[in-house]
Design a protein around this nucleic acid. Structure first.
Lengths: 338, 338
DNA sequence: CTGTTAGCGCATTCAC
DNA sequence: GTGAATGCGCTAACAG
């Protein structure tokens, strides 16, 4: 491996001079700069960033911690983060936690060891506070995206789960639905919790009764077999909900599959709506009615905010950016009842 | 930041001893090990991997270079790579090239500077040879995935584009289609080229005439507006193809959108088939007839192969793993004609 | 404008 | 079983 010493020797200068031209620092005569640059090109020299990092204490490494890149929402988040990172000269380490706190902890340790400059994280849940504190202790700035964790000093890019839920439910109610079930994720995740609370609230405001049997909990993961809504539909049609609100797109898919297997038609027999779009899909078959979030921006802005912290150019006070959801009405919510 | 010196001082041992317990190397008495470990835990010490890398010349960093994580095929590839990397104790740097050679080159330079231990790459095209040579010169092992580049010393995980194409076309021909158009990507990309050649061959074998007007070239990227098949459909129905073979899933989506806008029904008016599945989608609406590839395995196996090179446990000869496509017949190819 | 000295945090190679 | 010296490749702080 060639080093600045090799370059220095061949260019008849000191290693320091080489370092200076590499980093464009200090004053160097045009002549020596050209000479050094020629040798660098000739020897295909590329600086060892481990050695650089050891000195300057910056790695130009960022990490994106999400639960699953395979979830279309996070796929877009990742694209946004990767774009901003690239644009700013950073490399992005991808971490999938699978909603698993232990995995998240392992990643956090590895990232601290790597001395990444910053982290963009959608935490696995409320327990993550511990991991975030660890980042703070190690002076690694991070921005929280999508999922809220209270009482942590950091920037945030969050959605509006109340608004998104209300939009969806009000739409169903306006269509005449009175029996609306909800399938939500674990209440240790802020998005689940907020959507859950918004559901309760919206139903109350509309004087609809809240039936505990219509609230089913599942998780935010993909799986082949799922029978979460069995008790919702294995009853006489009159006792079934007329609409189901899925707390995210994965859940919606599971629900629609379940319904199809039981020969229940969407939206004719039961309407289905959900949080987060499946853009690629909706693009060629506008089917699902959703509260769509600007997923790309979560990643892009989240990354921008950390980089500002890394560069210490951000404002003293931590910021929270709120990204608005948009109601997209398509086929799955059917038509007004009666 | 705490270092081995801090640990050493507090534990009353030499820095070297600390290093030894961290790396589980050499002989250490149980007593001192415990003592050191206690201090490490107490001070929340985590080794600086930049310093480690500088010595051992390994970074435990891998990189996945793909064209676009947003393409469902690559999303799965990324998941496979991330899983294997995590499982083996590596971190994964994600790079999106957007089919752009310059971007790819920049990434390659950055990764060499970072001294990543290995790279898993789906190259942008034939020009990428230069970038791959650069990796070789820097002794960074890599495995080529999905896209073939000739005459480069490396492991490969490739699909079978001939087989996948034939499966799809034979299926259409068996259904009675004689006028089959193909929309393919740039012929500088091996997958495009192979699918293109397989198209020509399969048509010939079946004594079907090859109409140049039925061969349209586009690229492998997403876009909002696209009018690539205008000349295919803006003619009298009798002159139109009865089926279209899309060289990948992005293209298929663009085609189906185009057709829908022109009120042409799939598959009633024109059948559409493509390479690569859209699993999430197909899962709840089995619509597209495809040649499905085990995307996850491209990433998983690709990563496994590089790690074997990094660890120098692979066989002397470079390997090529061929992953078989599977024909999945769904609605978009319609029913037998007449 | 350029070179010298020192040290980043750790592991390797020898001693003991 | 443990420690001391040395260097990985580079840059910061100085000197000239």
């Amino acid at each position: 491996m060639t080093t600045i010493y090799d370059i220095a020797k061949k260019a008849n200068v000191s290693p320091m001079t080489v370092s200076r031209v590499i980093n464009n620092k200090g004053n160097i005569s045009e002549k020596t700069r050209e000479k050094v640059e020629a040798v660098i090109k000739e020897l295909n020299y590329i600086p060892n960033s481990a050695a650089q990092s050891l000195n300057i204490k910056k790695t130009k490494l960022l990490s994106l911690i999400i639960t699953d890149i395979t979830n279309p929402f996070f796929t877009k988040v990742a694209r946004g983060a990767a774009d901003k990172a690239n644009q700013m000269g950073y490399q992005l380490i991808l971490c999938n936690t699978d909603e698993n706190y232990e995995k998240e902890s392992e990643y956090i340790n590895a990232l601290i060891s790597k001395r990444v400059d910053g982290v963009i994280i959608a935490p696995t849940g409320d327990q993550s506070t511990k991991n975030l504190k660890k980042l703070i202790k190690n002076r690694i700035p991070f921005t929280l995206i999508d999922r809220q964790i209270e009482d942590v000093s950091c920037d945030r890019v969050l959605g509006d789960n109340y608004e998104g839920t209300k939009l969806l439910l009000q739409h169903l109610i306006d269509y005449g639905h009175q029996r609306i079930a909800m399938v939500h994720g674990p209440l240790t995740i802020s998005t689940s919790k907020e959507r859950y609370q918004a559901y309760i609230e919206t139903l109350k405001i509309n004087d609809l009764k809240i039936d505990p049997a219509f609230l089913v909990e599942t998780h935010y993961k993909q799986e082949k077999q799922w029978n979460g809504i069995a008790h919702l539909v294995n009853v006489s049609p009159a006792d079934r909900p007329t609409a189901i609100f899925a707390a995210n797109n994965f859940i919606a898919i599971k629900i629609i599959k379940s319904l199809r297997e039981k020969k229940i038609k969407v939206p004719e027999d039961i309407a289905v709506v959900c949080f987060d779009d499946l853009e690629l899909f909706s693009d060629f078959d506008p089917f699902l009615t959703v509260s769509s979030q600007p997923a790309y921006d979560f990643g892009y802005l989240g990354t921008q905010l950390v980089i500002e912290r890394v560069d210490e150019v951000g404002p003293a006070d931590y910021r929270t950016i709120n990204l608005k959801p948009e109601l997209v009405i398509r086929k799955s919510s059917g038509t007004p009842i009666k």
